[in-house]
Write a protein that binds this DNA or RNA. Structure first.
Lengths: 162, 162
DNA sequence: GTAGAACCTGAACTAAGGTTGAGATCAAGC
DNA sequence: GCTTGATCTCAACCTTAGTTCAGGTTCTAC
C-alpha cells in the first residue's frame, strides 16, 4: 500500500496532483478559484481530487499550449453536462475547435513569415506601402482620398543607408 | 501648407505619429518611457518626432506581430549605432533573426497541430502516454524507474464515455 | 507526543503591454 | 481674448496566469 493517505489512492492530494500533472500547487489552487477544476474537502479541509482531475489538468495544459486562454477553457468546461470532466466525445469536439484555432494562428504566422521574406531585401517598412507593416492600417479609412498617392511616403526614408 | 504646427511637417506631433502609425498616443508615451523611441521637445514641452519615428514604430509593430517582446526590441534598437533608427542593413539583420524566431514558433505550433490530429480519435489525454499531453513531462525524471510501466495509467480513464 | 512535511487562506506581488483619469498647460482658430 | 482641442505628467488601474508570503492547521512518521 503506497499511501495511507487515501486508502488505495482513489483520490489525489493537491501535492500528488501537482506532481503527476506537472503544474504547481499554487497553479492548481488558482485553477480551482477560476472554476476549472473541483475538489472535495476532507474533514480537515484539505483538497482531494478524483483521478479524472488529471485528465482535466492535462486538457488545460494542452489548451494553453494551443494558445487558448484559461477563461475560454473555463467556459467550455462549464458547458459540459454534469461533472465537467470531458469524455472522449467532448474531447473530440473541443480538440477540433482548438485545432481550427491553431490552424488560424499558424496561417497568420506563415503569412507574416512570407512577408518577412519579401521585405528582407527591401527594408522600407513604409507605413503606406510595405506589405509587412500595412495589414492593420486599412488604407483610406482614416481620411479622404487615396493616401498612397497623396502623401507619397513610399520607400523614401532610406537616405540613411550608407 | 497643411500644418502651421511644424512648418512643412518635417516633424510629427504625438497625435500625428499616432494616427499615421496606428498606435495610440498612450502607447507612444509608453514606448518612449521604455526607450524604444525618442523625441525632441518644443519650447512648450511637447514632443516632436522625426519622420524616421514612423519607421521605428513600424518596426516595433512588426516585431510584436512576430511575437518579439518589447524588451527585446528595445535591446536591439539600443544596440544600433548612433541614432537607433534602423537602416536597411540593420533591418536585414533583424528581420532574419526574427524570421528565424517565427520559424521556430511555427514549427512548434505545427507539431502541436499534428498531435491534435493524432489524438482527436483517441482522447485519452493520458499524462503518461499521450503524445499531446506529454512533451513537458520528461518521463522518468521525477522518480526512479520507467513510469510508463510502473504506474500503468494508460488510457484507462475512459469508462466515462457513454 | 512531537517534529516536520504538507496543507490551508488571504493578500500582496510579478511581468508585459499598455489604458485611464486628474489636473495643468499649450496651441490654434475665431 | 477666449474657447476648444491637443498635449503634458504622474499615479493608479487593467488583464492573464500565476507566485510568494505570512500565519495558522493537519497529517504522517518516529
Amino acid at each position: 500500500m503506497p499511501g495511507t493517505r487515501n486508502e488505495i489512492a482513489l483520490e489525489l492530494t493537491v501535492g500528488q496532483l501537482a506532481e503527476r500533472s506537472g503544474v504547481t500547487v499554487s497553479a492548481l489552487h488558482f485553477y480551482e478559484r477560476q472554476g476549472l477544476i473541483t475538489s472535495r474537502r476532507t474533514s480537515g479541509n484539505q483538497r482531494r481530487y478524483a483521478r479524472s482531475a488529471l485528465r482535466t489538468v492535462a486538457l488545460i495544459r494542452v489548451a494553453q499550449r494551443a494558445g487558448i486562454p484559461l477563461a475560454e477553457v473555463g467556459e467550455v468546461l462549464a458547458a459540459l453536462p454534469d461533472r465537467r470532466v470531458p469524455n472522449r466525445r467532448d474531447w473530440e469536439r473541443l480538440s477540433r475547435r482548438w485545432q481550427a484555432d491553431l490552424d488560424r494562428r499558424i496561417a497568420e504566422l506563415l503569412d507574416l513569415r512570407d512577408k518577412f521574406g519579401d521585405c528582407i531585401g527591401c527594408g522600407c517598412l513604409s507605413i503606406d506601402l510595405c506589405r509587412l507593416v500595412n495589414p492593420w492600417d486599412e488604407l483610406g479609412v482614416r481620411g479622404p482620398g487615396p493616401r498612397r498617392l497623396i502623401d507619397g511616403e513610399a520607400c523614401a526614408d532610406e537616405r540613411d543607408d550608407g
